[in-house]
């Protein structure tokens, strides 16, 4: 039958939009047309932050979103959107699919009556657009920056003012000085918003999101109603989307970066002192969240255990 797939992203966003279309087409092929997803762009049926609720209630069959959006309902979900100072794309996929992450993710989402899985990797983001140069951690004090979630909590530890302005007000606010900086996405997407016109410092690395996931979740009753073959088809296609997003996104960024540089933007890395200060503040935020939420602790412990084993072998083989 036909199933509704509500995306939290615009259909015209690079990578995120086409990935959903590719997902729908491949599932259709592999199931011989038995599962045909109709892809709805951001807000067409459900508002982006209400997709989880609506898929759980059965108004929509499946959601295409970012787990960080569920952090207001389940703080530990944020760790399946991205782990600040955490894994790169391959390590992240490895831990979630083969290191115990997915089981925890499904446990977190079970009360919402949906079954989640990673379905596309969001490669490392930029650190953000700044109107001022950041030379030392001191420069972060009093900085008005649009960033949410764990990243916002980390920055406020260093004296910045994280605020949550709607996307429509970012550009002018940067231009006028109402805002000093904003976190956004990776260069291909940032280019659409034209921030290079109003902020001249484009900082890396995306410490708050070394890599992230597009998440797919399906209403649990619908999921349980499918045959093993159909569920396997969906999961297999998601694995393909994981690789496809990495394959198309990384090399594609360079063109956007070149365009920014041509517009007079300095593309640079944060100084090491800033990165170290952020790393330290991140550890504090983790400690607070682990103390407040047992599930958050459980997820981080699972990741750390996996990470330790993974890194040791990687270190042995580093070239």
């Amino acid at each position: 039958g036909t199933y509704s797939l509500q995306s939290a992203f615009g259909k015209n966003l690079p990578i995120l939009g086409p990935a959903a279309d590719r997902f729908a087409a491949e599932v259709d092929t592999l199931t011989g047309g038995k599962i045909a997803f109709k892809h709805y762009g951001a807000g067409e049926l459900s508002p982006p932050f209400e997709i989880l609720d609506n898929v759980g209630a059965g108004a929509i069959d499946a959601g295409w979103s970012y787990a960080g959006y569920a952090a207001g309902k389940a703080p530990a979900a944020a760790l399946f959107g991205s782990i600040p100072f955490g894994p790169d794309a391959i390590k992240y996929v490895s831990w979630v699919l083969h290191g115990g992450g997915l089981q925890l993710w499904r446990e977190i989402y079970a009360p919402f009556n949906v079954v989640p899985m990673p379905c596309g990797v969001i490669i490392s983001e930029a650190g953000g657009w700044y109107t001022k140069e950041i030379k030392s951690p001191e420069d972060l004090k009093g900085l008005k920056i649009r960033i949410g979630g764990l990243g916002g909590k980390v920055l406020s530890k260093l004296g910045a003012n994280p605020m949550s302005l709607p996307a429509g007000e970012i550009s002018t606010s940067l231009e006028t000085g109402r805002l000093d900086a904003t976190e956004l996405s990776f260069p291909m997407i940032d280019r659409l918003l034209g921030l290079d016109k109003v902020a001249k410092h484009y900082y890396f690395p995306g410490w708050h999101q070394p890599s992230g996931f597009i998440e797919l979740y399906v209403n649990k009753d619908k999921w349980n109603g499918w045959s093993d073959a159909e569920r396997t088809a969906v999961e297999t296609v998601c694995s393909d989307i994981d690789l496809w997003t990495i394959g198309t996104a990384v090399a594609g960024q360079q063109e956007a970066l070149d365009a920014f540089r041509a517009d007079g933007v300095t593309v640079e890395r944060f100084p090491d002192s800033v990165i170290e200060a952020l790393r330290k503040a991140t550890a504090e935020v983790y400690a607070e969240n682990e103390a407040a939420d047992p599930m958050f602790r459980k997820v981080l412990e699972s990741y750390r255990a996996f990470s330790k084993a993974y890194d040791q072998y990687q270190a042995l083989n580093r070239l």
Binding site: G56, Y69, G72, A74, F112, G152, P162, M163, S164
Partner: peptide, 14 residues
């Protein structure tokens, strides 16, 4: 009720 049962709050320190 769903907001209540998940103790939903601002994810941005609001």
């Amino acid at each position: 009720l769903r907001a209540w049962s998940s103790s939903e709050m601002s994810p941005n320190g609001g």
